[in-house]
Write a protein that binds this DNA or RNA. Structure first.
Lengths: 199, 199
DNA sequence: TTACTAACTGGCCGGCCGGTCAATTGGGGC
DNA sequence: GCCCCAATTGACCGGCCGGCCAGTTAGTAA
C-alpha cells in the first residue's frame, strides 16, 4: 500500500524539510517561494504553515536539522579517535575534508545562513573548534606539534582551507593547474603538517 | 551650489551603484527590492530602469564594478613586487590578507554572487591565480620553496585561508582562544612558510 | 458509535513585487 | 532663442507574494 495517502505528521514534516533543504540550498531563503516549497514537498502551502508557522520557521527548522546532523557527526569524529598519536591531526583534516566532499550541500546551506546573519549555530561551531583546539594543545604538550602557534588558529586554518575549497569548487574545478580534490588535500597536508613540525 | 539638483547621468549612475552595492552586500540580490534601491539612491525606480534596464542589470553592474576594482588592485600588487626574493610569497599573503581586512564588504559581495551561481568573474579569478602560481613556480625553481607541491594549490591554500577567515569573522571574533586578525595572520604565516621550506 | 483533535485542503486577501509608459524637465549644440 | 534628446518623474499595471481562515477528513480514545 502507498503510505503517502495515510496521515503521518512526522513523515510529512520530514518530507517538507527535505524538499525545503534542497530548494534553500540551491537558491537561498529569499529567492524561494512558499508555493515552490509546497509543490516540491507534495503538500499544500497551508500545510507548511500548519507545521512550521511561516516561511522563516521552516527555514530555521531546515538549518537546525542540517546543523544538528553536522554537529553530531563532527563531535563523534572528534571524540572517537582517542589516542593522541602523531597522525591524529592529519587524520582529522582528512576526515573533515572527506566529510565536506560528501556533503557539499551542507557547505552551501551554511554559507547562505551565514550571509543572512544567522548566528544561532555559532556556539556549536565554537564548541567544535574548542574541542579540536584542545586536541592540538595536547599534541603540542606531548611535543608532537610546534607549540609557538595558537591551537585555535591551527584548527581554524585547516577548517578554512577545507571549507573554502568546497565553497568555491564549482569555480576552480577546471582552472589550469588545479588538481582534483584529493590532490589539493595531499598538497595542503604536506604544507600544513610540515609547517606544524616541532623545532 | 548643490550639484545633486543638476542632471548628470554619470553621477547618477555612480550614486545608484554605490547605494545598490551597500544593499546587495548586506542582504543579497533576491531580498532587495527596486523600491529600496530607489530610495537609498535618492532617485525614482523608473530612473534605475532607465540606466540599468532591470534589477538584474543593476546587480550585474554592481558585481562588475566591484570585481574590476578588486582585479586591478590585485593584478597591480602581483606585478609590482618584481624581484623574486625569499619573502615574496610571505609579502603576497600579507598584502592579500590586508586587502581583505580593508574590504570585507567585497568578500561578502563575491560570496553572494558565487552562491547565486555567477561565474562571470571566474576567468579573471583564474588569471590572478595563474599569475600567483607562476610566481610560486619561479621561487620553486630558484630553490626558495619546496618543489613537491602544485604551485596552484599553494596559492589556493593561502587564498582560501584568508578568504574564509573574513567570510566568517563576525562569527568567530569572540570565540574563546581566537586571536585578532593580525594574530591569526601571524600564526598562519608561521605554519604556511615553514611548510613550504625546501628540504 | 461517537466525539474530539489534529492533519490537511482550497480559496481568498491585502499588499508589494518588477516593470512600463506617457509626460515633463533641463542642458548642450546650432 | 530654439530645438532636440537624454534625464527624470509619477502614476499605473498584472501578477505573485506570504499568510489566513473556514471547512473537510481521518485517526483515536472513551
Amino acid at each position: 500500500m502507498n503510505e503517502s495517502t495515510t496521515r503521518d505528521a512526522d513523515l510529512t514534516r520530514a518530507r517538507i524539510l527535505e524538499a525545503a533543504f534542497d530548494l534553500f540550498v540551491d537558491r537561498g531563503f529569499a529567492a524561494v517561494t512558499m508555493r515552490e516549497l509546497a509543490e516540491a514537498s507534495g503538500v499544500t502551502k497551508s500545510l507548511i504553515h500548519h507545521h512550521f508557522g511561516n516561511k522563516e520557521g521552516l527555514w530555521d527548522a531546515v538549518k537546525e536539522m542540517a546543523f544538528a546532523r553536522y554537529y553530531e557527526g563532527q563531535k563523534a569524529d572528534l571524540e572517537r579517535s582517542g589516542d593522541p598519536d602523531a597522525n591524529l591531526l592529519s587524520n582529522s583534516v582528512v576526515r573533515y575534508f572527506r566529510f565536506l566532499a560528501e556533503n557539499p550541500r551542507v557547505v552551501r546551506l551554511f554559507s547562505w545562513a551565514h550571509l543572512e546573519g544567522d548566528s544561532s549555530c555559532s556556539h556549536m561551531d565554537a564548541e567544535l573548534v574548542e574541542l579540536g583546539a584542545g586536541r592540538v594543545r595536547q599534541a603540542q604538550e606531548a611535543g608532537q606539534l610546534r607549540d609557538d602557534v595558537n591551537p585555535t588558529h591551527v584548527v581554524t586554518t585547516f577548517v578554512n582551507a577545507c571549507t573554502q575549497w568546497f565553497a568555491t569548487c564549482e569555480h576552480h574545478a577546471d582552472w589550469p593547474g588545479m588538481g582534483s580534490d584529493e590532490e589539493y588535500l595531499a598538497d595542503f597536508l604536506k604544507i600544513f603538517m610540515r609547517g606544524l613540525q616541532p623545532d
